[in-house]
Simulated assay, not measured.
Amino acid sequence: MELALSTRTDGDRSVVAARGEIDLYSAPGLREHLRNLVSDGVRRLTVDLNSVEFLDSTGLGVLVGTLKRLREVGGTLVILCDQERILKIFRLTGLDQVFDIQDSASPDGS
């Protein structure tokens, strides 16, 4: 399955909704999309993974890199996820302690 991305604005936050699989083949597209948003001045970013069916280490690397870039410019990253199979990956890698992971559809980013 391919990865589909859509972006919307929710107040001062940009929300990127991902649908499909984030893996070795699709992660570069996600990386470019997120990098472009940060380059365009987005400082409050949410990545919605609620419709993601698969996430591998390459996808995790993209999210970690985006978090790092945002922190360098004083920004924030919220991960929206209510998928137990995806949340398990964050827990197993310890990244649940690094990311602000929420299951709410309208994160406040705090």
Score class of each variant (00 low, 15 high):
3 L>F: 04
4 A>N: 09
4 A>W: 08
4 A>S: 14
5 L>A: 05
5 L>D: 08
6 S>A: 11
7 T>S: 05
8 R>N: 00
9 T>S: 08
11 G>D: 11
12 D>I: 12
12 D>C: 01
12 D>L: 15
12 D>A: 09
12 D>S: 12
13 R>P: 03
14 S>H: 13
15 V>I: 14
16 V>G: 06
16 V>H: 11
17 A>G: 07
17 A>K: 04
19 R>L: 03
20 G>W: 01
20 G>K: 04
21 E>M: 06
21 E>G: 09
21 E>V: 06
21 E>Y: 03
22 I>D: 02
23 D>Q: 00
24 L>W: 07
27 A>G: 07
29 G>Q: 11
29 G>F: 11
30 L>T: 02
32 E>H: 15
32 E>S: 12
33 H>I: 13
33 H>F: 12
33 H>A: 12
34 L>W: 06
34 L>S: 10
34 L>K: 06
34 L>V: 07
35 R>Q: 13
35 R>N: 12
36 N>L: 12
36 N>T: 15
37 L>M: 05
37 L>K: 09
38 V>G: 10
39 S>I: 10
40 D>R: 13
40 D>A: 06
41 G>C: 15
41 G>Q: 15
42 V>Q: 05
42 V>D: 11
43 R>M: 11
43 R>H: 05
45 L>N: 03
46 T>R: 06
47 V>Q: 04
48 D>H: 08
48 D>C: 15
49 L>D: 02
49 L>T: 01
50 N>V: 08
51 S>Q: 13
52 V>K: 10
52 V>G: 00
52 V>C: 00
53 E>A: 00
54 F>L: 07
54 F>E: 00
56 D>F: 09
56 D>P: 04
56 D>R: 08
59 G>W: 00
60 L>V: 13
60 L>Q: 04
60 L>Y: 00
61 G>Q: 14
62 V>C: 10
62 V>E: 11
63 L>S: 04
63 L>W: 08
63 L>H: 01
63 L>E: 07
65 G>D: 05
66 T>Q: 14
66 T>E: 15
68 K>P: 11
68 K>Q: 10
70 L>P: 06
70 L>R: 07
71 R>Y: 15
72 E>P: 04
73 V>G: 10
74 G>W: 03
74 G>T: 11
75 G>F: 03
75 G>R: 09
76 T>G: 14
78 V>Q: 15
80 L>Q: 15
81 C>W: 06
81 C>S: 14
82 D>H: 07
83 Q>A: 05
83 Q>Y: 01
84 E>F: 02
84 E>G: 01
85 R>H: 09
86 I>K: 05
88 K>L: 10
88 K>P: 01
89 I>Y: 00
89 I>P: 01
90 F>P: 04
92 L>N: 12
93 T>W: 02
93 T>R: 07
93 T>D: 03
94 G>H: 09
94 G>E: 09
96 D>W: 03
96 D>E: 09
99 F>A: 02
99 F>K: 08
99 F>S: 14
100 D>R: 06
101 I>N: 04
102 Q>S: 10
102 Q>M: 15
104 S>K: 09
105 A>K: 13
105 A>R: 13
106 S>P: 07
106 S>A: 15
108 D>I: 00
108 D>N: 08
109 G>H: 13
109 G>R: 10
